[in-house]
Design a protein around this nucleic acid. Structure first.
Lengths: 183, 183
DNA sequence: TTTTCTACCTAACGATAGGTAGAACACTTG
DNA sequence: CAAGTGTTCTACCTATCGTTAGGTAGAAAA
């Protein structure tokens, strides 16, 4: 599954064959079928773990905060944990974000329960920013998650500091582009 | 090309076969080779037009503004034009955003010049928000474009008002989540 | 009227995809 | 040691992929 996640992340769902995965695992293709009944099942397992990983990372980061931490500090912590899971923690979450849009609808649906559970965390976090207004919240939750996920397409953690990125994005999202110029 | 763009957008690069495109076009597969030398050339043509379309849309929207319009109003206008191109104007831009990450590196590289030209517009727009600081700019340009593009994965223009979305995202990006609660 | 071009066609190619059947190996347990 | 069980193997299948070869009807050009 580690190998599959890394390959899916790098080259996409349809472009990665079971032969590719088996070869890197030091196996023959049919041997994979002992562990997974089909390519679909394998990719679903990778996708679900991708959400589980980031959800646990964010939950743990929030749990480590002092209980009286204010809403915007909690939000910043969650953003940093999410970015860390995306860019460093494992290939599962990044594979999920990368290939979700490439999957046939049936496979996408199989990942939706996990995704909704994760979105619920962000709904709680973002609720104070819009006085609980459900229509605004319904836009802000996917917007913030989507904006963070989009960093996967342009940020290279090998060439930039991930914490600096988290700081800067946190500032922009919380206070907007309008305030403070540089630094 | 219209058909190819729509199918790429809906189902991804590798999942769309030349047979699929030809069938919808009312042709046999090899007939496509009269118009395009290969699948790669076809997809490159679609990708490049996708950026051209949104660049012209944004440029035109900015040109229609009074010349003395201040920086943040110009930014809001550009955001709205970008969202419109993504969600309504044509399938080329949305296909580009959807499948860029799925392409083999060689095809991605073929689209980079167009992309850089488009990013230059946003660098101009965003420069006033960070006093021209190049490091901050290098993060903010892909961040804003990425955040807008990510709406493709969750916003359905058939079920929500695109202008309302543009307004709300413009407010969040310009003034942040911290200010004004609801509405 | 002869030639060339445009826009398609049918037939088939080699490569590769996901998947199956069943034999062979490896390790634990009686 | 023999049996059983878990794991990987060889060999092969069918479907589909992008692509090529060679040809054809009709419009345009000479």
């Amino acid at each position: 599954m580690d190998i599959a996640a890394r390959q899916f992340r790098a080259r996409g769902y349809a472009a990665v064959s079971l032969r590719d995965i088996a070869t890197e695992a030091g196996m023959r293709t049919p041997s994979l079928y002992y562990h997974f009944p089909s390519k679909d099942d394998l990719v679903i397992a990778v996708m679900n773990r991708g959400i589980t990983v980031v959800r646990k990372a964010v939950t743990a980061a929030l749990a480590a905060l002092p209980p009286e931490t204010e809403a915007f500090a909690r939000l910043g912590t969650a953003m940093r944990a999410h970015l860390r899971a995306l860019h460093g923690l494992s290939d599962y979450t990044s594979a999920n974000v990368r290939i979700f849009g490439q999957l046939p609808e049936a496979l996408r649906r199989a990942n939706l329960p996990e995704r909704r559970a994760y979105q619920a965390i962000w709904a709680d976090l973002l609720s104070p920013t819009c006085a609980g207004n459900p229509e605004v919240l319904a836009v802000r939750v996917p917007f913030v998650i989507g904006a963070l996920n989009a960093t996967l397409e342009w940020f290279d953690p090998a060439r930039g500091d991930l914490d600096a990125l988290a700081d800067q994005l946190g500032r922009v999202l919380l206070t907007g582009l309008k305030e403070q110029g540089g630094q």
